[in-house]
Simulated scan of single mutants.
Amino acid sequence: MRKLFAFLTAFWLCLPGATASMAAEGGSLRITEMAVTTKVSRNNPIDAVRRINHRSVPALYCFTRIVNPSGEETPIRHVWYRNGEVVGEQELQVKGQKWRTWSKRPIDRDSIGTWRVEALDSAGKLLKAVEFRIN
């Protein structure tokens, strides 16, 4: 089965334009999990916040699990919005084919509102977004 797969892959790469399209697909970052959480433990989120009181925790984290087929180091950005306005950005490095990373945002009484965190690739393309509310 492996030999057949290797043969078909080699054959496909010989087709005109196949290499460019495969490189474009193979190099694409993909987010398999993204959650706003109250804590990251053992490199995993402990919960997924949809609504939270500003007195509950001192900070929130945006956890992101990423598949990076190329395996090359590349940055992503977490952009934090409150009521539609950017209130923070953080660049995070993706350093392998399967990677987990997170950004942190302190919360307090002034944090009340509707929130969104967007994950963007190095070209600014939206990979995924999550929304939540702080009361």
Rank of each mutant, 00 (worst) to 15 (best):
W99R: 00
V94C: 07
T9A: 09
W102Y: 05
E91P: 06
E131L: 04
R55Q: 12
F7K: 13
N44D: 15
T38M: 04
S122T: 10
P16W: 00
E131I: 09
H54T: 13
G27E: 08
D108K: 10
D110T: 09
K95H: 14
P45I: 01
A129K: 06
A35Q: 01
Q93M: 11
D110F: 12
A129C: 11
R55T: 14
R65F: 07
L15F: 14
L29G: 04
P45F: 05
I76E: 00
S111Y: 03
K104W: 07
E118N: 04
D47L: 00
G96H: 03
I31T: 09
V79A: 09
F63S: 05
R116T: 04
A10N: 13
L29D: 01
W115D: 03
V86T: 14
V67A: 09
E91Q: 10
W99V: 03
G17V: 02
L60D: 00
R55S: 14
E85P: 00
M1D: 12
A20P: 10
N135S: 15
W12Y: 15
V94W: 01
L92I: 07
I107F: 02
I76G: 00
H54Q: 13
D121I: 08
L120H: 03
G26W: 07
L126E: 08
N44T: 14
D108L: 09
T114K: 12
R109E: 13
E25D: 13
H78M: 06
S28G: 10
I46Q: 10
H54D: 14
P75G: 05
Y81T: 03
L60S: 05
A123H: 10
L15H: 11
L126N: 06
S70N: 09
A18I: 13
L8Y: 06
R133P: 07
R42I: 11
E91L: 08
L4E: 13
S56A: 12
V36I: 08
V130A: 05
E85D: 09
V87N: 05
A129P: 03
I76K: 01
Y81S: 03
I76D: 03
G88F: 02
T32Y: 02
E33M: 14
E131N: 11
S111W: 03
T101G: 04
T32P: 07
A20N: 13
M1A: 14
V67T: 07
D110G: 07
R2S: 13
I76T: 01
R82F: 09
F5R: 09
